[in-house]
Design a protein around this nucleic acid. Structure first.
Lengths: 355, 355
DNA sequence: ATGAAAGCGCTAACAA
DNA sequence: TTGTTAGCGCTTTCAT
């Protein structure tokens, strides 16, 4: 292992004035470094209000800003949170990020974000490199393929919360959407609308969220429809991949009132594409309802019924949970927090019952 | 000004072993700190291959990882790039971020991301706080309302590149999409399809990108259609706001073959919504064509003609330009790099010429 | 209420 | 080829 290459020129310095340090401030204010440091850290009990005012003035005048690297080196914290996202381009993630980001601001924390592209190796690398940056905590949207590695972090007491995607072992705080409840709600809705067969269309079970949704569908379908669940896995993300699946689904359920549940926005997109290609129309040929309230779902053919997820809130909760650990109880037992989803009924499940 | 509050518990330490430093490695390898430091920085010329191997082994064995804060404190660089995004939830931005992120990885840089929500005050704050973190450079997707502040940064030689949104002053490297060219292409396409009047629908001129697109439309429209440009500003992002605008547009251009150009995906969404509400269909009632190739545009009513922007590449170029400055020529003159867009012709501009 | 001094873990002159 | 040493800018005992 070898870390980094040499570096030719460096020129980034303080924005306002150049290289003003605590020493300059101390000199100008006529007090010691210590007092400045105390001021910087809000320990006003240890100085006269005269000093306090002088220091404030000098800092303002000099345009002094503390060097966070130096602070962190000594104090062992950086006021930085690391966020490791599996796919930064998904709308779910960007809203999650905004939630995290907004909330961090209120706590005075910065955010270090990396994108793994669902690659477990990168996940490990990035987490390690965030630790090298001495982040105070990590929010992880995990690929789900690093159990062993992550367990080691848990042992080392790295404050880490899982965002959205859970892990089989209950070693970490986890903030996610309440998929199970809403799946029951959605299937109940479909049954009410007169659909008699509902298949689940989704990508393979590569992460915790998918596994949960798949299980929820199966349980709900058995309970509400009293039939054998039908899960259709979309193997590749090409438009063509879903076509044979849709045809199978049609054949498997000939004579039934068919509907499809999709496990996320990507799957919804695939299915809608495929249906258009096959000349199938909703809500009558096939009803459709899926996770992720993406903007276009409202637009296509008078609207697709969707499950809206509170991704912004998930982000916020992750930060809050981390703050709890950092400032209150670092040894609290790992907890799973589930935030409720909402079913937005639109045209795609509006089957004409007496046709 | 006062910086930060005190902090109760800190427990984030090295993941592998606890608090192994360069001193431990040196001791165990039987060499001095300096040699370890040299190893860490790839200066293998200054050690025997025996030492080199020993060090590698010891690092591996101890699970040692260098403390980046300490490195940065001394060496004045952090191997971190700061990215300040105006709206992290826009698909353009998330793809941009992915481009930046992927490219940074190849250069061994980490990415510190913040979201201003188009607030100029936050923009200033975040940039300053990134400088406090001693990032080596900054990529800014600016609100456009901090000219003075940013100019000061330029004076202080802060390596900063503008992503997507340009500034009136030419003080910074800027990487953006070639809006002007593609606007001419798009209007040419509309003319070819037999449209005789084209209005531009957009949000107010709040940032450099919008200004550019507005200007480009006006010039292109005059040149290609030989008529007075018509720009319709969508004031609020409510569905209703666009309705009266569409009605005006219809009236203003009665008897013409009408088409709309939109300046971004949000505007496209508004217009499509509004048209549906008014019972207007494209391509015949009104043709439509807009910036941003968002996924749903392919889905709605057999597809909307769009201008695809190379946002991923924009991200990559920003990083490359920054690396040029950091490693090659910090004093290079600011340059504006424009990456070509692509017109994806779909159904929404497929007017039946002889109707 | 305030200060002196010893580091935090690393890099980089300067010596050898 | 290798080591010695003096910091980087801050925090934090421990004195006073």
């Amino acid at each position: 292992m070898f870390f980094g290459t040499s570096y030719l020129g460096v020129m980034l310095m303080y924005a306002r004035k150049k290289n003003i340090t605590i020493v300059d401030v101390a000199a100008k204010a006529g007090v010691s470094k210590t007092t400045i440091s105390r001021y910087l850290n809000g320990k006003f009990e240890f100085m006269s209000s005269a000093s306090r005012e002088r220091i404030a003035a000098v800092i303002e005048e000099l345009g002094y800003r503390p060097n966070n690297l130096a602070r962190g080196l000594k104090s062992k914290h950086s006021k930085l949170l690391g966020v490791v996202i599996a796919d930064i381009t998904s709308p779910f993630s960007s809203i999650l990020l905004k939630g995290i980001s907004d909330c961090c601001e209120r706590y005075g924390y910065g955010v270090l974000i990396t994108n793994t592209g669902d690659d477990p190796k990168k996940e490990r690398e990035y987490i390690l490199s965030m630790i090298d940056q001495h982040v105070d905590g990590i929010i992880l949207n995990t690929t789900g393929k690093n159990q062993e590695f992550l367990l080691q972090l848990a042992k080392d007491d790295v404050p880490l919360v899982l965002a959205d995607r859970p892990l089989a072992v209950k070693a970490f705080d986890t903030v996610r959407t309440a998929d199970r409840e809403i799946t029951f709600t959605a299937l109940g809705h479909l049954r009410e609308r007169g659909y008699t067969s509902v298949g689940l269309f989704m990508e393979p079970l590569e992460n915790g969220t998918r596994v949960c949704r798949c299980n929820a569908y199966q349980d709900a379908y058995r309970e509400i429809f009293g039939k054998m669940p039908q899960v259709y896995f979309i193997e590749k993300l090409e438009e063509a991949a879903v076509i044979p699946l849709l045809q199978e689904f049609q054949q498997d359920n000939a004579g039934e009132s068919r509907a499809i549940l999709t496990a996320n926005g990507v799957a919804t997109l695939q299915v809608v594409h495929g249906m258009k290609r096959l000349g199938l129309a909703f809500p009558d040929d096939i009803g459709i309802c899926g996770f992720d309230n993406w903007e276009w779902t409202e637009l296509v053919d008078d609207g697709i019924t969707v499950i809206a997820q509170p991704s912004y809130k998930v982000g916020r909760e992750c930060v809050k949970r981390l703050m709890m650990r950092l400032y209150r109880n670092s040894k609290a037992l790992p907890r799973s927090i589930e935030l409720p989803c909402e079913l937005l009924v639109r045209n795609s499940t509006n089957r004409q019952v007496n046709r």
